[in-house]
Amino acid sequence: MESTGTNTASEPGAAPDLDLVTVPTRQGLEAVDIIRRAASQAGGVGPVLHDGSGDTLGFLVPSGTADAWDLPGSACTQTNGRGVRFGDAASPTAGATGWLLPPEAVGPVTDPDVLRAALGEAARLIEAADNCR
């Protein structure tokens, strides 16, 4: 059998090919709440990463989402199974990246359409709250 140069076998605890949508923490936390409140939406919220500095949250979404993601104020990158491990600790040490919502607690990835709508609503709520000051 000839090697193609790519490793298709998953390591134990490794994520499949997924994309990661990163957003500012405040907007991300609002989006998590919005998705959870709308329990009837397909799939609900999936695994969410946070960085140790508290600046960003990352939502795991299906592979291919990055190809068409264009929501201002966010970024979507392909992980190709790298950098995201389903076996990582749920409570990371300071300065580390860890799970806000670990995979074993929430299930499958977040639907990109549901996430896009929730992030838009979150941005509007934050803007309204900031304008009330």
Rank of each mutant, 00 (worst) to 15 (best):
T8K: 12
L125I: 06
T8Y: 12
A128M: 10
N131T: 14
T6C: 11
V109K: 04
A123P: 05
G54M: 10
G83D: 06
L60Y: 01
G28N: 01
A9G: 09
L57V: 00
G43D: 01
T6G: 06
A14D: 04
T4A: 11
G58S: 04
V45Y: 07
V114S: 09
I34W: 07
M1P: 14
S3F: 13
E11L: 15
A123C: 08
D111A: 08
L20I: 02
C76Q: 02
D55S: 15
G28A: 04
P112Q: 12
P62V: 04
G120L: 10
E127W: 10
A66K: 07
G64K: 14
L29F: 11
V114L: 05
A122S: 09
A105T: 01
E11D: 08
D70S: 13
V45M: 04
G44W: 05
G107Q: 13
G46I: 11
V114C: 05
D67I: 05
T93R: 07
S10R: 15
A89V: 11
S3Q: 15
G81P: 03
A90S: 14
S63K: 12
D33E: 13
N7C: 12
G43H: 03
P24E: 15
A129G: 10
N7P: 05
V23G: 06
V23P: 11
A15L: 06
A105L: 06
A122F: 02
A96H: 11
A39P: 06
W69T: 06
S40R: 12
V21K: 03
G44R: 09
T4F: 14
T25N: 08
L20N: 01
P102V: 00
V48H: 04
W99G: 01
G120V: 05
L100C: 08
A38L: 12
T97D: 06
L119Q: 03
L125E: 07
P103R: 00
P92A: 08
P103K: 01
P16H: 10
S74Y: 06
L71S: 06
A94H: 09
D19R: 12
A117Q: 13
N131C: 11
A9V: 15
G120Q: 14
G44A: 06
G107L: 01
Q27A: 05
A96Y: 00
G13N: 02
R37K: 10
G44T: 04
L49C: 08
L115D: 11
G44V: 09
F86M: 11
V84M: 00
L119A: 04
R124Y: 07
A123S: 14
G43S: 06
T110D: 01
R82H: 10
T110Q: 00
T25G: 06
D88G: 03
D88R: 15
A105N: 10
D17H: 15
A123K: 10
D88E: 14
G13F: 09
A68N: 15
V61M: 02
